[in-house]
Computed example of a mutant assay.
Amino acid sequence: MTDPTWNAEFTRHFDLTADSMRFTAYLLCGNWHEAEDVVQAAFLKLYLAGPKLARRDGLTAYTRKIVVRTFIGERRRMRWRREKLTDSPPEMPSGGEHIEDRLVVWQAMSVLGARQRAVLVLRFWHDLSVEETASALGCTTGTVKSQSARGVATLRQRLGPQYADLWQEVSRRA
């Protein structure tokens, strides 16, 4: 038996956050089809857990946590499956300054492991604190800091000195 109050709340939450969660999953996966699968699984998990939740005031953060953990879980189960690089750039929302730089950085992220990519997306795309990122990933703040440092170091090495301004910005926010 489903709770009609939860059904209405879930529908409202889905309508407000589905696009954002889909884009977060895309940043993590690099593939719209896989992102759709991750988001679908995440919203199903949320729907099933919803009636048992003691508090529902942080549904967006909780949903993001489910999306990230679903992505990481899928990557663990399918280690043999690797992302395939293409000649065409990924679909990104239009607008914003330095979109070319974002595309280059995003493509460079394809070399990172699932956990490092998740840390960087949560820290620098969603602007979460170290503590919030650790909570979303179910790990320690030390793990977030080390994964962030390693991921940024890998990107810095891959992209080279022409992105020095970007690294100053990242270092300031880290």
Results as ranks from 00 to 15, higher is better:
residue 81 R to S: 08
residue 58 G to Q: 13
residue 31 N to A: 09
residue 89 P to D: 13
residue 82 R to M: 00
residue 82 R to C: 03
residue 5 T to I: 13
residue 166 L to H: 03
residue 115 R to C: 03
residue 114 A to D: 10
residue 36 E to Y: 09
residue 102 R to M: 09
residue 127 D to F: 11
residue 51 P to R: 12
residue 61 A to F: 15
residue 129 S to Y: 04
residue 19 D to T: 13
residue 90 P to N: 02
residue 147 Q to F: 03
residue 121 V to P: 01
residue 155 L to A: 00
residue 125 W to I: 00
residue 150 R to V: 02
residue 97 E to A: 10
residue 138 G to R: 04
residue 103 L to V: 13
residue 21 M to N: 12
residue 160 G to L: 06
residue 55 R to V: 12
residue 162 Q to R: 13
residue 103 L to W: 11
residue 73 G to W: 12
residue 97 E to H: 09
residue 99 I to D: 12
residue 62 Y to V: 04
residue 146 S to H: 08
residue 90 P to M: 06
residue 127 D to W: 12
residue 139 C to K: 07
residue 169 E to D: 13
residue 54 A to K: 14
residue 128 L to M: 14
residue 86 T to I: 10
residue 45 K to G: 06
residue 22 R to G: 06
residue 77 R to M: 13
residue 76 R to E: 08
residue 84 K to H: 08
residue 62 Y to T: 05
residue 51 P to Q: 09
residue 90 P to V: 06
residue 126 H to A: 09
residue 146 S to M: 07
residue 109 M to D: 04
residue 135 S to K: 14
residue 122 L to V: 07
residue 147 Q to L: 02
residue 115 R to G: 02
residue 1 M to T: 14
residue 133 T to F: 07
residue 14 F to D: 04
residue 166 L to G: 03
residue 21 M to Y: 06
residue 114 A to W: 05
residue 70 T to N: 07
residue 84 K to W: 05
residue 16 L to K: 14
residue 19 D to N: 12
residue 34 E to D: 15
residue 97 E to Q: 10
residue 50 G to R: 10
residue 58 G to I: 08
residue 156 R to P: 06
residue 67 V to C: 08
residue 42 A to H: 04
residue 1 M to W: 11
residue 45 K to S: 14
residue 79 R to K: 14
residue 13 H to V: 05
residue 77 R to H: 13
residue 76 R to F: 07
residue 20 S to L: 11
residue 85 L to I: 07
residue 67 V to K: 05
residue 65 K to P: 01
residue 13 H to G: 03
residue 154 T to R: 00
residue 100 E to V: 15
residue 172 R to C: 03
residue 104 V to S: 05
residue 174 A to T: 04
residue 26 Y to K: 08
residue 119 V to E: 01
residue 174 A to E: 08
residue 109 M to Q: 04
residue 144 V to M: 07
residue 146 S to F: 08
residue 113 G to A: 04
residue 119 V to S: 02
residue 75 R to G: 01
residue 160 G to F: 06
residue 164 A to E: 15
residue 52 K to A: 13
residue 114 A to I: 04
residue 26 Y to F: 15
residue 127 D to P: 06
